[in-house]
Design a protein around this nucleic acid. Structure first.
Lengths: 230, 230
DNA sequence: CGAATTTATTTACAGCGTATTTATAATCTG
DNA sequence: CAGATTATAAATACGCTGTAAATAAATTCG
């Protein structure tokens, strides 16, 4: 069981840790601070936090390996802190399974909103076997997807994709991440697979496949299922 | 959180420190004085002031490196004190992320007004994930910009620029600063990039792109987003 | 088991959108 | 006014995406 309202902050800069602690504690989160990546990993293992904030500028060794390590045994949501001009590191972190990112210097309200959103997503999925989004619905137990209450005929791969998207609504899923999840760690070059399957899915789930509102492209990065209202 | 109403003054001239202290304390600011750059950095780290006043004429460490140091871990507003004839050092300080500058000998009323303005800007941004200016609005969480409540279609680079401008309303952002923030530390020569993108943004956000009221040019220095009333 | 059918993988290509570069006109500043 | 700076449009370059269609593999079913 995860510890309610506990957040682990992994950052080598004590100033930023302090600012984050004060900000988060004011919102009644319990904060565990770690200055080094190794300590951060141990803290996540011991405290089972509800969320992790990880600064990519760690000197100890790079934040990526910390994230990769955590991801081998935990699906706790991880928000990345990074400098603005490092688009590449953001994508690399998302590839490894980071849930969200925020650029330094960050704005407090934005950070809090992202924390809430990421915690909410995990709670939603953990407790539901059926999830709705717009006029779509997925049943994780029966492994079926419906559009306007009509069952869609999906192939196995198509269903796997839908499952991942429904479990990560509003989260950017990188090409690499999706390929690893579905085709395993070897096919990270085969982005074209994704294009073909995304295209097929759009034909089935979108009202207008040429102007998708569910499966959105983040050019150069990946795809994302948008939350759609009713 | 930052310490309310606390200002750190970094200046090697005890006369000026004394004048500043008396002036600021009369306005109910708490003042921390530092004579040397190193002490100033430590003071900022320990007290988390709401604002910093930094004299560029420091002997021990030169003022620029003090500013650069602080900027690696803090976005606290920094007002530069400098002698009147040093246009170059002002631009250099703004490049490094100074928020404002004021020439010695300074006029008390003007100094207080600038202090208030710089504190206000940070408070405004820090407490909102949505910021309005005139008929524009930015949502830092959804990463969207609106004009008259209509979503604008911005490219990634255009959005990054808008984000920086909205986080720094009324502050002059130098070419170098903007180029570093968006294209990284290598492209500091490519001012033409900025001209092209600023032009594109004006077409999208201004009512009359030829007479901009949001994105103002400071010829030879940089650009600035003006606060616009409703 | 083998043919028919579905699904996955590959190949090919057209088109779009964006960043960058170039060229030139307009404007600003001292 | 002269030189520097800025604005604007247009051209270019290029990567990425989406679609279709061909081939291969897997699955279904009589």
């Amino acid at each position: 069981m995860t510890a309610q309202n506990t957040i682990v902050v992994i950052d080598d800069e004590s100033q930023i840790r302090k600012i984050l602690s004060i900000t988060l504690e004011a919102q009644d989160y319990k904060v565990i601070e770690a200055a080094k990546g190794k300590d951060g990993i141990i803290a996540v293992a011991n405290y089972h936090p509800q969320l992790v904030i990880l600064d990519l500028g760690l000197p100890d060794k790079d934040g990526f390996s910390v994230l990769a390590d955590i991801r081998t045994w935990s699906s706790v949501p991880v928000i990345i802190l990074s400098v603005r001009d490092s688009e590449d590191s953001i994508v690399k972190a998302l590839d490894l399974g980071a849930d969200d990112y925020i650029a330094k210097p960050f704005n407090t309200k934005e950070l809090l909103a992202r924390i809430r959103a990421n915690i909410r997503r995990v709670q939603l999925i953990d407790n539901e076997s059926i999830v709705e989004n717009g006029n779509l619905r997925i049943d994780f137990v029966k492994r079926l997807v419906y559009k306007n209450n009509l069952e869609l005929k999906l192939t196995n791969t198509e269903y796997l994709l839908m499952q991942i998207f429904f479990k990560n609504i509003d989260r950017i899923l990188t090409h690499n991440f999706l390929l690893k999840e579905i085709w395993g760690p070897t096919h990270t070059e085969d982005t074209q697979y994704l294009r073909v399957f995304i295209g097929q899915l759009r034909k089935k789930i979108e009202d207008d496949a040429a102007n998708p509102k569910y499966l959105i492209t983040d050019s150069g990065v990946g795809y994302r299922m948008m939350a759609v209202g009713n």
